[in-house]
């Protein structure tokens, strides 16, 4: 399993908000650990969200009103679920779109060749 190095963690921090917003757009609500597992599952272990990076991002988005939370009792303890607000839905679309544009421009600069598949 490929372990993310420090450089990749730096790149990951820059697009963590977009990743979280995209995941929450695809799923009605998710809790913190579920988000880390989902990223690992989608990328087959290539990307690992660290807890120290994820929770500050979730809290910041919640404070800004992009996300809202709801509690549910699971296995005798409270679990905090995050979901997009109405303004969060719009912000999710624009954040993902901006990141996609950024990646396209980055590819032009780095002159990356597309993979043959």
């Amino acid at each position: 399993m490929y372990i993310c190095d420090m450089q990749q963690q730096t790149y990951l921090k820059g697009c963590l908000s977009a990743i979280v917003l995209q995941l929450l757009q695809d799923n009605s609500r998710m809790y913190g650990y579920e988000i880390t597992q989902r990223v690992r599952e989608i990328t087959a272990g290539e990307l690992q969200l660290t807890e120290g990076a994820l929770y500050p991002t979730l809290h910041k988005l919640e404070a800004e009103g992009v996300l809202t939370t709801e509690n549910a009792l699971v296995d005798g303890r409270n679990r905090k679920y995050y979901k997009l607000t109405e303004s969060g839905q719009q912000q999710a679309q624009s954040a993902v779109s901006e990141l996609a544009d950024f990646v396209t421009n980055l590819q032009k600069i780095l002159n990356l060749k597309p993979s043959l598949s």
Binding site: G32, Y33, E51, Y55, R77, N78, K80
Partner: peptide
Amino acid sequence: EELLDHYIL
């Protein structure tokens, strides 16, 4: 509660 849930899982 949030962090405890995460640790346990």
